[in-house]
């Protein structure tokens, strides 16, 4: 792994240019500050805002209700819209607040994005998140929270006795016993802080086990 900054020359082969790069007169340069993935010739971001992509599952928050849309904050520079017809029940516009009210959090999928970054959502889970807790971390750390092939997230779910849902936009929903949730959130924040260290999954496993032993005493 190697850190690169914007403007670093990565390759002379313009055809291979991946994410986080740009091509200028046949050469590939880094466009963001992050970690270089030589194999795919892309730069993995360490910072930055969440940009929605079609098909992402996210945790959204209702910020406003317009005539036939809920206006949703998805932790991104752009607000998203959830149309009334996406709800499985037949809802009248004046009744929208009863099903999803301002401040409600829920799991949604990004249905469509147009060139002007108008984001349309569709519901993944029809009821809002009424219990558990939601935390917000940088979306660039989400791949580490999930781990290779889901190794990290499966470890967390198993060892911490919590139900965890990870949104692509950096919001994570945790549901379980109060003590377990406290620990899950602490662990998640630790993963965010130390996401760039190698062997993180093993380190987290050890941490959870020692912590649990301490509690039993």
């Amino acid at each position: 792994m190697k850190l690169v900054i914007p403007g670093d020359l990565l390759s002379d082969d313009a055809k291979k240019a991946g994410e986080g790069t740009y091509v200028s007169s046949g050469r590939v340069y880094a466009s963001i500050y992050g970690i270089l993935d030589r194999k795919e010739l892309r730069v993995i971001p360490l910072f930055g805002k969440y940009m929605p992509h079609t098909g992402d599952t996210v945790i959204g928050k209702v910020v406003d209700i317009s005539f036939s849309n809920w206006i949703i904050d998805i932790n991104s520079p752009y607000e998203a819209l959830l149309h009334i017809s996406e709800h499985p029940d037949r809802i009248y516009p004046f009744d929208m607040g009863r099903h999803l009210d301002i401040g409600d959090l829920f799991i949604a999928k990004v249905k469509d994005i147009d060139a002007t970054m108008r984001v349309d959502l569709t519901l993944e889970n029809f009821s809002p998140l009424r219990n558990g807790r939601v935390i917000e971390i940088s979306h660039t750390r989400i791949p580490r929270v999930i781990g290779r092939g889901g190794s990290m997230i499966n470890l967390l779910k198993k060892e911490l006795d919590c139900n965890i849902f990870v949104g692509q936009n950096g919001r994570i929903w945790v549901h379980g016993e109060e003590d377990d949730m406290d620990m899950a959130i602490q662990t998640l924040l630790k993963i965010e802080r130390e996401s760039h260290t190698p062997g993180l999954t093993d380190m987290i496993r050890e941490m959870i086990i020692t912590e649990k032993k301490g509690k039993r005493k």
Partner: peptide
Amino acid sequence: LADAGIPMRGI
């Protein structure tokens, strides 16, 4: 700007 993760041609 680089620290904010904003895409740029260079510094």
